[in-house]
Design a protein around this nucleic acid. Structure first.
Length: 416
RNA sequence: GUGGGUGUAGCUCAGCUGGUUAGAGCGCCAGGUUGUGGCCCUGGAGGCCGUGGGUUCGAGUCCCAUCACUCACCCCA
């Protein structure tokens, strides 16, 4: 039997309702914060991601879905959302409008990775981006938005981890220093960390291997290398977080996997999940527009993993109560009355009601059972007896009460 | 990409050291109720036991491969 491709899945029935709920809460929050929607293509030129995310990153090196189309173009399914939004921002000259500009998106992303809980090959992210301001208050707005979103969903135990990853002025010197420091200890580092010395020395600092921790114990922290501008910005971010009473933990080892991040980097961690507990990642990307061939335009944003949030909500039992029974099921008990019954069905629908009928020629009993199982509150019965008296039976499945009404009375009864 | 676990009905799972027609609960369908859901009772449908190969007189059970899920890494949302 055919199955959905590895790392992909179908969202249906009750699960689809949960997705709708989450998306709705997100959209409402976006409205309040004045983020407007942007929808960008699901594939872009590969080059866009290589340049923005960074060719040395794992995402580019081993996780990107790349393909050639029939015209020989080198394309890639988007592995993340910010690059496409940035490309669109530039392509449409949005940097010429009054700044800042704020966007949100919700959609599928693709990474060729080994699937497991909270990690799919096609997964969904909802994210927000602010272009055109360096103001630390913009960083804080992104964080506050995220905190508000989770509060609205009912989360209580999320932790905000924050750090500054510096900028092209100060980060390279720290990386060089760290690389040299690590090289001296190379013999006591694990194979992964030896690799990290080349690719991302910052990551050696939070390696889980004990010998690596010990070796790097006396390594300097990034914050001692921050340039005045980065330092000032970071301090202001923390100060504003305090002013807004948003609890946070500074994690000097917090690094982002995407090269474009500068200054503020943060994550929201859900501690009750042991792995894949990072629900949201975000930060500032002041040079991303430039690396896409545009002028200097600072930016800051976040991306939230939809599947992971849903997993966390499952764990915390945060779903709103199920909808109460609603709608009308029209049970037609005599095939000869179908025309008349269907007319009534469409009249009810025309009044804006959820209405349904039977399409399998089932017994009245079976029809009522179906109505009950599928969450209808009312059953309207049309059979020989009703036809004879020009009446209908209106049964309230919730109350277990039944009354006789004429078709006109029925329509009037359900008139909003 | 690396290493471990699992894979039996639509769903959740049982099936002892390989041994006749593979089971349960829930769900689905029908009947008990000549027109009336829920609770209860009865019956029914539904499984090439993930797929392919091998060992054996005989494989759901053992071996290999493969696919999928899952856990831990790498990394990330």
């Amino acid at each position: 039997m055919k199955k959905a491709p590895r790392g992909t899945r179908d969202i249906l029935l009750q699960e689809a309702v949960k997705w709708q709920y989450l998306e709705e809460v997100f959209r409402e929050m976006c409205f309040k914060y004045n983020f407007t929607e942007i929808r960008t293509p699901i594939f872009e030129e590969s080059e866009l991601f290589v340049r923005s995310v960074g060719e040395a990153s794992d995402i580019i090196k081993k996780e990107m879905y790349v393909f050639k189309d029939r015209g020989g173009r080198e394309l890639a399914l988007r592995p993340e959302g910010t690059a496409g939004v940035t490309r669109a921002y530039l392509e449409h000259g949005l940097n010429h409008r009054a700044q800042p500009l704020k966007f949100f998106y919700f959609g599928p992303m693709f990474r060729y990775d080994r699937p497991q809980a909270g990690r799919q090959r096609q997964f969904y992210q909802m994210g927000i981006e602010t272009f055109g301001t360096e103001d630390p208050a913009a960083d804080v707005e992104i964080i506050k938005f995220t905190a508000d979103l989770f509060a609205k969903l009912g989360f209580e135990n999320l932790s905000l981890q924050i750090n500054s990853v510096g900028c092209p002025q100060c980060r390279p010197s720290f990386q060089d220093y760290l690389r040299n420091f690590a090289r001296e200890k190379e013999s006591s580092l694990c194979p992964d960390c030896r690799q990290r010395m080349q690719t991302n020395p910052l990551r050696i600092l939070d390696c889980k291997v004990l010998s690596c921790r010990e070796a790097m114990q006396d390594a300097p922290a990034l914050d001692s290398f921050l340039c005045p501008s980065c330092r000032e910005s970071f301090e202001m971010v923390l100060k504003l977080l305090q002013a807004l009473q948003i609890p946070y933990q500074v994690d000097p080892c917090l690094v982002r996997g995407l090269d474009y991040y500068t200054k503020t980097a943060f994550e929201f961690i859900f501690d009750a999940l042991d792995t894949q507990n990072s629900l949201v990642g975000g930060g500032r990307y002041d040079h991303l527009v430039e690396s896409c061939g545009g002028p200097y335009v600072p930016g800051v944003g976040m991306a939230a993993g939809v599947e992971r949030i849903l997993l966390a909500m499952e764990k915390e039992n945060l779903w709103p109560a199920e909808d109460a029974p609603d709608g009308i099921f029209l049970a037609i008990d005599d095939p000869g009355l179908r025309g008349e019954g269907l007319l009534l069905l469409y009249q009810l629908r025309a009044q804006g009601l959820k209405a349904e009928t039977d399409y399998l020629g089932r017994s009245l009993k079976a029809q009522m059972k179906y109505a009950h199982r599928h969450g209808f509150r009312y059953v309207v019965i049309l059979g020989k007896e009703e036809k004879l008296h020009k009446k209908l039976k209106l049964r309230d499945l919730l109350q277990g009460e039944q009354q006789e009404v004429s078709p006109a009375e029925l329509l009037k009864h359900f008139k909003s």
